[in-house]
Simulated assay, not measured.
Amino acid sequence: MIGKWFPALRYWNLANAITTGGAVCGMLAMVFFVKGHFGLAFTLYGAAILGDYVDGIIARKLKQTSNFGKEIDSLADAISFCVLPAIAGYTLGVTSPLGIAALVLYLIAGLWRLAFFNVSGLEEGGRHSYYTGVPTTIAASWLLVLSPLMLAGDFPGREAALAVAFAICGMLMLSAVPFRKNGPATKALYVLLPAAVVLNWIVVG
């Protein structure tokens, strides 16, 4: 009956629910950034990243992969890893014309990176698979790793440094740089991301 009146809900399963939850975390993180509750905002930011990691595992384990799942995952990534970091940067002081230009570059690069991946997929190279360009999740993750420095207080060149970080992440997402799936740069985040979230609470609290 639900599927008749709300046909999209026919695709409701655990994997897609986790993806949706990640998008909700991304939206709530933006709300808390705007309100200045940075510890909670970055915690939800981290939860969105965790959701993006877990949903794929669940989909494969429970055989819940589908074209619908790929589409909603990409849309959730646009919210949490393109729009959210840009909002975070602005609320943390990247507000000059050049700074906003860097945030816009990051946002556009992320959207184009997601669309490009949807049509190109992974490349195989020996025993490993590679992305063309840095994935949006990874770019957003490394910005979160840098977040304790963003919150640590005002220092000369702070806004310029943040703007450069966003611009570099944007260029790497659009680049032809081969990025290994589940490589060392990704595995390091398993430790660095939780550490950054904890440090943020210490800095703000």
Rank of each mutant, 00 (worst) to 15 (best):
M1I: 05
K4S: 04
P7E: 07
A8R: 12
L9S: 13
W12E: 02
A15H: 05
A17R: 06
A17S: 15
T20I: 07
G22S: 12
G22Y: 07
G26Y: 03
G26A: 08
G26I: 08
M27N: 01
G36D: 12
H37L: 11
H37D: 15
F38N: 12
G39H: 00
L44R: 05
L44T: 04
A47F: 14
I49V: 15
G51Q: 10
G51W: 12
G51V: 02
V54M: 14
G56H: 09
A59M: 02
K61A: 10
N67E: 15
D73E: 11
A76R: 01
A76M: 07
D77M: 09
S80F: 02
F81S: 12
V83L: 15
G93I: 05
S96M: 06
P97F: 08
P97S: 02
A102T: 03
V104N: 06
V104K: 02
Y106Q: 03
L107G: 02
L111M: 14
R113P: 07
A115S: 14
F117H: 00
S120H: 15
R127P: 04
H128L: 00
S129Q: 13
Y130R: 06
Y131V: 00
Y131G: 04
P135E: 02
P135F: 06
T136F: 03
A139G: 10
A140G: 03
W142L: 14
L143E: 02
M150N: 11
A152Y: 13
D154P: 05
F155R: 09
G157A: 11
E159R: 08
L162R: 08
V164R: 01
F166K: 01
I168R: 01
L174E: 05
S175L: 05
R180N: 00
G183N: 04
P184G: 05
P184W: 13
A185L: 15
K187R: 14
K187L: 15
K187V: 07
A188R: 11
L193N: 07
L199E: 11
L199H: 00
W201M: 09
V203F: 14
V203P: 11
V204D: 07
